[in-house]
């Protein structure tokens, strides 16, 4: 069944159906969930097979496919534009070639970055300071737990700073992670000044000769200007203890977030100069296509992806794998 017929059917499910039919529908739904990834690829194959040129209808279809992956109107149009130019040059094209070109065009929009463990040596005699920011509920604290585990495994001495002093039990949550991973943590009472927690953490890390400091911050919506200004204050304080700190400002994005993620990246960058992204919850059905636009427009690379709730469920972002997963080749 074609991708769009399937969706059409799901829309028309107001019709009264027999129990047999509805159980069939349930199966179909389960299947469609299973197939969310493959259907995109199949669709493209169908639209271009046996054609020497991609016509307008095909391109419209591709646009639709890109948009339903959260890639967004603007970036989708850009990708199609690039694809069109390529197709103009290469007169003949089969479906495999088209898919490859499409993938390459998307990959070219994605900037890459190194693993932080490889950058730690770039700072001498001081800890490498990472500041973690993002809106509420994206998975900042969990990502920090996983990062700490990763660094510890790489033989680095890690200190965590519990600078989310606002959300109920946020400090407790990070404390549990620090115990689970077996790294030090610096904390103060709930409601205390997050900048002072960050300051203390870095000082304590220096006295302990730690290699990496990770500062957790409270989730905040990027349109709350005062909370965003607080973030730049926290950032500036770090610079007073260690020149050039923080060395990395990691913005955590939830893969299920739609186009609003672009605004998040813009606003967080404007107050803290975000230099890498962590894309979380990629183990669900969401594809996180919005990072393509962020990477292209703002030149901020995705560094890590979160694929589960366990300590080990953090991976380096690999753009080929990411794009392949979009098309599930």
């Amino acid at each position: 069944m074609a991708f769009f017929d399937k969706i059409k059917n799901l829309f028309n499910n107001n019709d009264k159906v027999s129990s047999e039919e509805s159980s069939q529908k349930q199966k179909k739904l389960e299947k469609s969930l299973e197939k969310t990834k493959t259907s995109l690829f199949n669709k493209i194959t169908k639209t271009v097979v046996g054609k020497s040129k991609i016509d307008d209808n095909d391109l419209d279809d591709i646009e639709e496919i890109l948009i339903t992956s959260d890639i967004g109107v603007e970036t989708s149009l850009k990708i199609i534009d690039r694809l069109e130019k390529r197709v103009e040059k290469d007169k003949y094209i089969n479906s495999d070639e088209l898919t490859d070109i499409l993938k390459k065009e998307i990959e070219e929009l994605l900037v890459v970055s190194k693993d932080i463990t490889l950058e730690v040596d770039s700072v001498e005699n001081v800890p490498y300071v990472i500041m973690v920011v993002g809106v509420n509920g994206v998975g900042k604290t969990t990502t920090i737990g996983k990062l700490a585990h990763k660094f510890k495994k790489a033989g680095l001495k890690v200190v965590l700073g519990a600078a989310d002093t606002f959300r109920a039990a946020a400090v407790d949550q990070l404390v549990i992670w620090s115990e689970r991973v077996g790294v030090d943590i610096v904390k103060q009472a709930m409601g205390s000044d997050p900048a002072s927690v960050a300051f203390d953490t870095i000082q304590s890390a220096m006295s302990k000769n730690a290699d990496v400091v990770i500062i957790d911050t409270a989730g905040r919506l990027h349109n709350k200007i005062n909370l965003m200004n607080e973030l730049s204050k926290i950032k500036n304080v770090m610079n007073k203890v260690v020149t050039n700190a923080p060395h990395d400002v990691l913005l955590v994005l939830d893969a299920s977030t739609g186009q609003n993620a672009i605004e998040q990246a813009k606003q967080f960058s404007s107050v803290t100069q975000v230099n890498s992204l962590a894309l979380t919850k990629l183990d669900g059905t969401a594809k996180g296509g919005v990072v393509i636009g962020i990477s292209d427009q703002l030149q901020i690379p995705v560094r890590y992806i979160g694929v589960g709730e366990g300590m080990e469920d953090l991976q380096m972002f690999n753009k080929e794998d990411f794009v392949n997963t979009l098309f599930n080749n």
Binding site: L29, D254, S256, T257, G258, G284, T285, K287
Partner: peptide, 15 residues
């Protein structure tokens, strides 16, 4: 549901 959810909202809500 997070109001910032993108196209995946349909899948998740249905499931």
């Amino acid at each position: 549901v997070d109001s910032m959810t993108g196209q995946d909202a349909v899948n998740t809500a249905k499931a």
